[in-house]
Design a binder for these strands. Structure first.
Lengths: 212, 212
DNA sequence: GTCTATAGGCCGATAGAC
DNA sequence: GTCTATCGGCCTATAGAC
């Protein structure tokens, strides 16, 4: 379960924390299997045996790293949601833009979660990542319905589809960052996610043809 | 270079072909590092040493598998492009829909390419996958511009952005298949990519507000 | 072209001293 | 809580018979 309970953990020892940091970066970059306890130990500047003192197994270490990554994004998105503007039309647009910025603020965690959804490392992990995904998804559906309600358009476009599209556009931007620089035509918005969010949202709302 | 030259390869031996098939499925499912020569040999029903007779190294085997996957998708998309309808408005929409169907027709190859773009396995591999991506991307930009030209809207939306969105929507649908079934709200279009394409395209063109 | 046998290395995990 | 030393296993790759 994603920790809404804000009971801070008992302030991890320095050693354990540096292990978690090193593990996060390697698991995120290479995946569970390819990241080795050896290299994590080296980067964390502890011995391999020390890792096994703090964590029962490689799997357990991975689970905790993944959990922290999910919490990080979940908390970040919750904060965004609480400081959304009042006007329903703006709320969806702002959340869309801020959602992308959350992903980009924690690229390593985001990448780890993306990996977890792609590979099937562990049953618990998949559930965790899916829960996060479905949480964000529900939030956006509500915001879409909110904005639809105000405009009273009831135009037949279902909110879940639009929500799916919005999440998808941000995820795709995130994962395409690495190759965007090799696509000269689209270089404009590589360094400007704000511009990207703005353009995509307006396009979705106003439509390709109707654009002013 | 993506083989436009249609000189068929010299009809691979049965053994080598079954190795390539087994390798494709494991590399796609687990990634380069996690897939082992042992399991590939077992699935291909040959000995491990036999693999090293046909391929100089694990890397070489991977390269060839990746190359075939890229060619498969490239050829498939080229075929689609050649049998597009005449009306410019329909061309883009049809290509968009067919692009998704290509991805879904070769899910294992598509997944392998996606993995290659995510991990940094080999320099050659990345180039290959990027070339394919940029190829598709260019095709779609042309189709967008074509349809824009006809409508003479010149409305300021840049073709590369729309092309990026279209490719992104299809890639995201592809990679979300596994978790879509866990999102009850969106179950409608899991089994119907045609419906998804139709809805997304219309939404993009007509816009959220303007929808009939 | 196919095999068995094996070399040599890195892996996850543990034992046991401090 | 941290370490060195080590075990057993799986890995890529090769040697050499058929």
């Amino acid at each position: 379960m994603l920790t809404n309970t804000k009971t801070k953990e008992p302030a991890l020892h320095k050693g354990a924390q540096s292990i978690l940091n090193a593990a996060l970066s390697f698991f995120s970059e290479k995946g569970f299997k390819s990241a080795s306890i050896n290299e994590i130990a080296k980067k964390a500047e502890v011995s391999k045996a020390n890792i096994y003192h703090h964590f029962k197994s490689k799997e357990c270490l991975y689970q905790q790293v993944l959990e922290e990554a999910c919490d990080r994004l979940f908390t970040s998105l919750n904060t965004v949601e609480k400081s959304l503007p009042a006007r329903p039309e703006d709320r969806l647009k702002t959340f869309f833009s801020e959602h992308l910025q959350c992903l980009l603020r924690y690229p390593v965690s985001t990448n780890l979660i993306k990996r977890e959804l792609m590979d099937n490392n562990s049953i618990d992990g998949r559930l965790l990542a899916k829960e996060l995904f479905s949480e964000i998804f529900s939030k956006i559906i509500l915001l879409v319905q909110e904005s639809q309600g105000v405009q009273k358009s009831s135009n037949g476009i279902d909110a879940p589809l639009l929500a799916f599209i919005l999440v998808g556009m941000n995820m795709f931007f995130f994962e395409s960052q690495g190759i965007l620089k090799y696509l000269p035509q689209v270089n404009d918005f590589v360094d400007s996610p704000e511009f990207y969010s703005e353009e995509v949202f307006d396009l979705l709302i106003e439509g390709f043809k109707c654009k002013t």
